[in-house]
Amino acid sequence: MPYVITEACINVKDKSCVDVCPVDCIYEGPDQLFIQPDECIDCGACEPECPVTAIFPEEDVPANLKQYVQLNREAFNKEPKPGRPTR
Rank of each mutant, 00 (worst) to 15 (best):
A45E: 15
V4D: 03
A54T: 14
C17T: 08
V4P: 07
K13T: 11
E7T: 14
P51L: 11
R84G: 00
A8S: 11
Q70G: 10
C46Y: 14
A63H: 07
Q32T: 12
A54G: 12
A75N: 00
K66H: 08
I26S: 05
P22I: 09
E7M: 11
I35V: 15
D14K: 02
D60I: 00
V18E: 01
I5Q: 13
A75F: 02
I35D: 04
T6M: 10
P80Y: 02
E39W: 12
C25A: 07
C46T: 15
E47Y: 10
K81S: 07
V18Q: 00
A45Y: 15
P51V: 13
C25P: 02
I35N: 08
V52Y: 12
M1V: 08
P80K: 09
E74W: 09
S16Q: 08
D60E: 13
P85S: 00
P80A: 07
P85K: 01
D19Q: 08
V52G: 12
S16R: 11
Y68C: 09
P62E: 06
V12D: 11
T86V: 07
D31F: 14
P82Q: 04
T53W: 08
C50M: 15
P51H: 12
V52W: 14
E28A: 03
R73S: 02
V23A: 10
C43L: 10
D31T: 14
Q67C: 06
I41D: 10
A45I: 12
I35A: 08
T53L: 12
V20C: 05
K15D: 02
V61M: 05
G83D: 02
P2W: 03
Y68H: 14
I10K: 15
C46F: 13
C25D: 06
F76N: 03
I26R: 03
I41N: 10
L71R: 13
P37H: 12
D14C: 04
K78P: 00
D60Y: 00
Q32Y: 03
V23F: 09
D60C: 00
E58S: 09
E47L: 15
P85D: 01
M1T: 07
E59N: 08
C40Y: 06
N11Y: 14
C50L: 14
R87S: 01
C43V: 13
I41K: 15
E58D: 06
L71F: 11
A63P: 02
N11K: 05
I55G: 11
V4Q: 02
T6V: 15
E58T: 04
L65N: 05
D31P: 08
Q67S: 13
E7Q: 15
N77S: 09
I55H: 13
F76S: 01
L33E: 08
